[in-house]
Design a protein around this nucleic acid. Sequence first.
DNA 1: CTAATTCCTAGTAAATCGATAGAATTTATA
DNA 2: TATAAATTCTATCGATTTACTAGGAATTAG
Lengths: 137, 137
Amino acid sequence: MLSHKAKYALKALLYLAEQDENHISRTVEIADGANIPKKFLEQILLDLKRGRFVSSKQGKFGGYYLIKSKNDITLAEIHRLFDGAIALLPCASLNFYEPCSDCKTESECNLRHGLMLIRDKTLKAMEGITIASLVKK
Amino acid sequence: MLSHKAKYALKALLYLAEQDENHISRTVEIADGANIPKKFLEQILLDLKRGRFVSSKQGKFGGYYLIKSKNDITLAEIHRLFDGAIALLPCASLNFYEPCSDCKTESECNLRHGLMLIRDKTLKAMEGITIASLVKK
DNA sequence: CTAATTCCTAGTAAATCGATAGAATTTATA
DNA sequence: TATAAATTCTATCGATTTACTAGGAATTAG
């Protein structure tokens, strides 16, 4: 399941993607438009900035805007930024790999291989969902 | 990600699937064989029993055994029993559906449709992984 | 200088997770 | 029938995570 943070991030990105080119959106505007608690959204937007999905203009008349094409922002990326691994166990993860402490050796693990199959399919599906594909026409 | 509980459940089922037909496995035997904390495993086996994957014999020389074919126990079922919904949000879930409180109306939600696509693909993949398919030959 | 905004750090209440503890119940068999 | 060996039940616990909230510092336009 997605955390609220990831869900809010997606909704915020969708909001930004729906604005006119060159429009700068204030946090409060996004919060109201997408129904997200404002103070919480502040943190999320900063995370999205650190992840180079959006950039900001500080000070009066400042705000946030997309710096990555909505066609290039995938659900997989947002999941990883906010919720971490897409695989079902760390030992089956590409980006968040960690060995399992309860497995004697990895080659003997009956779970890992199957979970990597799942990971590949889920990842492929999640990479197919972009912000652009989600925006209502 | 899977909880430890779900992971241990899978490992316990794998252990049971590897035993001879009619063999009854004590908790401590499964715990040692699959490297699972014994007291924690007790609860997990009770959950698996309530889920009708295993049954038990009480008292001396008692223990647990599979009552569902290892070909019919899927990763999807175990995920749902221990970790709940497979979908990324409750509003996109088949078995754990709940509306989102932050969405005005469901038809206006830009996320839901995409998340249901993911759910369908992930679910299909997870239904393809059975205990039998995981057992080492 | 002031107002409006992002940026930063901390805190907090509630829930969840990953167990552990202890005792009640059930069963086989000596 | 007593005993040993097992499941079953219920409660508790510490650590972590989650979903926020609070407050102020820094930045910028006019």
